[in-house]
Amino acid sequence: MELTPAELTLLGLVIERPRHGYDPERVVAQRGVREWTDIGFSSIYYLLAELERRGLLHVPAAPAAARSRRVARQPSPGVP
């Protein structure tokens, strides 16, 4: 399975710690990631969904509470 630099970047950020969609944008900006890879704000959610579809991330449904966020995590061993 081949991953793009943007996918690898997001996967690495989630491996550091669980993150919701806005958090990777903040970290990408702080660390100057756009200087070496093309990762746009609008593509972060798409890439997180793609990584989840491939089984590389687990993004559970958001709780029903107001202002809840879906948080991407590493999949647990044995969880499809």
Rank of each mutant, 00 (worst) to 15 (best):
R73I: 04
R70N: 04
S76H: 09
R53C: 01
G32I: 03
E52F: 01
R31V: 01
S76A: 15
L10I: 10
L13C: 09
R67S: 13
R73Q: 15
W36I: 10
E50Q: 15
I44C: 06
D38F: 15
Y22P: 08
L57K: 05
W36H: 15
S76D: 09
P5A: 08
T9F: 05
E52T: 06
P24G: 04
L10S: 11
T37S: 08
R53A: 13
R53Y: 10
S42G: 08
H58P: 02
V33I: 15
G78I: 04
S43Y: 08
I15V: 10
E2R: 10
E25R: 06
R26N: 00
Q74P: 02
R69T: 03
L11N: 03
W36K: 15
V79K: 01
Y46E: 14
A64Y: 08
P18N: 04
R53T: 05
R53D: 13
R26P: 02
W36C: 13
S42D: 06
A65I: 06
S68W: 10
G40M: 04
R53N: 08
T4W: 05
V59W: 00
R31T: 05
L11E: 04
P60A: 07
R73M: 14
P5T: 02
R73A: 08
G40H: 13
H20G: 12
W36N: 06
Y45W: 13
P18E: 07
P75T: 02
Q74M: 13
H58R: 15
S68M: 05
R17E: 10
P18F: 12
L11F: 07
P80K: 13
